[in-house]
Amino acid sequence: MTVPSPGPPSPVPVLALGDILLVTLPGELHDATAEQLQQDITERIARSGATGVVIDISGVDIVDSYLGRVLAEIARTAALLAARTVLAGMRPAVAITLVELGLTLTGLTTALDVDRAMRLLSDPVVERPEAVDRTEGSP
């Protein structure tokens, strides 16, 4: 059996594109790396005054309840700092699994890809009031 050893967790880079922070998650994410990322993003928003965060998860193979919690917390923390978070590019298999797991991340805004996520953040009119409003209120 040849399984590449996971290697030492390296931090996930946070890029700034204007007022928006772009984070591209790697396929395999250690718990500690995810936690670190959460801190990094919070600090970056506070420091730069970013108004939006796009988390590109198109390369992520699985999202378990731990990563799900981290993502939800990033969004909530960002919201406290007046930045909106969009989760972009979730794969179908990951989405099905998350729903089955019981994790629907209702508070999070989602987009098909980074491009649309950026547009969503730059143009407040394109936001989906219906989807967000109705789900956030439900228990």
């Binding site: 989760l87 972009a88 590019g89 979730m90 794969r91 179908p92 990951v94 989405a95 099905i96 998350l98 729903v99 629907t104 991340l105 989602t110 987009a111 098909l112 890809d113 649309r116 996520a117 989807a131």
Partner: peptide, 8 residues
């Protein structure tokens, strides 16, 4: 719910 997670 799954479609929404994907952004649709």
């Amino acid at each position: 719910a799954a479609a929404r997670l994907m952004g649709a």
